[in-house]
């Protein structure tokens, strides 16, 4: 277990936990930005450079700018605390979430102790990826050969989303 991953994970976990209870939406948005950057750093540390770059550019760049822009546009400066008015619901939800987390961790422990050693290994280990020209080259080659149809369908979906967003923003619902 490398210490860099532990430090990044602890920062990400603290920021994610603060995001749940932060009063103003802009604090939560900045916490989410921190979590996304820490996740990108973890991707880079385990050797997935293309995914780390895409995470930084698309998630931490484009999507978070969109969120912060919306918060500024809608002028959401009122502190939101009414979700804490009913303590039964508030603490009940937190207890249920922690229970779910415990169950997932127990399942993961079972898997890593008993079944992880017998998993089927693919051919792209570290040395092969280095020999084929690096992580980005391997992923791009697979993207434009094996997953070409999916790539085209995703581009169609993006086009539809752009048209839908423009129509939604222009229409006046009565």
């Amino acid at each position: 277990m490398s210490p860099a991953i532990v430090i990044l994970s602890v920062i990400a976990a603290v920021l994610a936990a603060y995001m749940v209870i932060a009063k103003s939406p802009i604090t939560s948005a900045l916490c989410l930005l921190g979590v996304l950057i820490m996740t990108a750093a973890i991707y880079g540390l385990i050797g997935e450079h293309l995914i780390a770059t895409i995470q930084l550019v698309v998630y931490a760049g484009a999507i978070m700018v969109l969120f912060v822009f919306s918060i500024m546009l809608l002028n959401l400066n009122n502190d939101e605390t009414d979700y804490r008015k009913n303590p039964l619901i508030f603490f009940g939800s937190i207890a249920a979430g922690l229970g779910l987390f415990t169950l997932i961790v127990l399942g993961l422990k079972e898997y890593f102790e008993k079944h992880h050693a017998q998993r089927l290994l693919g051919m792209f280990n570290h040395e092969t990826v280095q020999k084929l020209g690096g992580n980005s080259k391997v992923l791009a080659h697979a993207l434009f050969t094996q997953f070409y149809i999916s790539f085209e369908v995703i581009s169609l979906a993006l086009l539809t989303a752009v048209v839908g967003a423009v129509v939604l923003a222009k229409r006046k619902v009565d």
């Binding site: 991953i5 749940v20 979700y83 937190i94 997932i104 993961l108």
Partner: peptide, 23 residues
């Protein structure tokens, strides 16, 4: 390392679920 990353993913998932449920 693998297990640590999976536990972090589980924790982030739980926190996201709490945000969706509570706010």
């Amino acid at each position: 390392n693998d297990m640590f990353i999976q536990i972090l993913a589980a924790f982030l998932f739980t926190m996201g679920l709490l945000v969706v449920l509570l706010r």
